[in-house]
Amino acid sequence: MADILINVIIAFLAGSLLLGLHRKIMARVQKRPGPPIIQHLLHSLKFFFKETAFPKTASMPFYIGIVFILAVVWVVGVIVGPVTKGSLLILFGVYAVYKIVEHNSGSSSGSPYGKASCVRAVLSAATELPLFAAVVLVYLKTGSMNIGNIISYQASNGPLAFSIPLAAIMFFLLLLAKSPYSPFAITKDKTLVSGFETEHFGFLRGFIMFSESISWYVMLWVFLTIFFGPLGVVGYVVGMIVITFITGFINAVTPLLNPNHSVMSQITLGAACFVGTVIMILI
C-alpha cells in the first residue's frame, strides 16, 4: 500500500514537472520566456483551493463522478505499470477508459463546448489503434503481455526499439497525441475553449490536472520500459526529459490538425508502421 502511495505521489510530482517543462520548451521555441517549470504543479494545487461551482445544466452525479473515475483510472495505471509491472492489456484498458472519461466529461457538463469536445473524443479514439497495434507487435515479438517478462526479454535480446522500431514510432504517436497542444489534440482545440474540461472548476479541475500529470508519467514510463529495455532511474529521468523535449518542439511548431486529418494521419501512420513491422518480423 505504501509502495502504491509513494509511486502515485512520484507520478504526480514528476508528471507535473515534465508537463511544466513541456510548456517551458514550447515557450522558448516560440521566443517567449514561458512560465517556471513548477507552474503546472502550482496550477494543479491551486485549483484544489479555488471555489467550486456547478453548472445548472450539469448531469449530476455523473458530472462529479467522472472526474474521480479519471483519477482512479490513472492510479490503476500506476499500479499496473511502475508498481507491479503487470499486463500491457490492462494498460490498454486504462487508456480506453480514459477516452470514455474524456467523452463523458464533455457530455455531462451540458456546455456546447464540452459537447463538441465529447464528439471529437470519439473521433480521437483513433489513437487507440496505433496503441493496440503496438501492443500486438510487442506480443508477437516477445510472446508475452507482461511488462516484467518484456523487460526480461529485452535484458537478453536488446531493446525492442532496435528490433521493432516502427512499433516504437507508433507508440510515440500516442505520446504525441497525448501531449498538451499536440497537433492531434482535437478535443482541446482552443476554439472549444478548454474542450471537455471547460465546465469543470475548482477541485474538479484540480483532479483532472492531477490525473493528467499522472497519465503523462505513466505513458512515458510504459514507452521507455517496453521499448528501451531494463532502465535505471537515470535512464528513466533522461528518457522522460528527452521525450518531453521532442514532443514540446513538435507541438510548438505544428498547428492543430483538422479532426478528419488528425484521425486519418494517425490511422495511416499506424497502418504503415504496423505493416512495416510485420514485414520486419517475418523477414
Partner: peptide, 20 residues
C-alpha cells in the same frame, strides 16, 4: 522509492521558495 520521492519533494519545495 522513498528516496526519489524525497528528492522530488525537496526539489519542488526549493523551486517554490526560489520563485517566491
Amino acid at each position: 522509492m522513498l528516496n526519489y520521492l524525497i528528492y522530488l519533494l525537496t526539489f519542488v519545495i526549493g523551486s517554490i521558495a526560489g520563485l517566491v
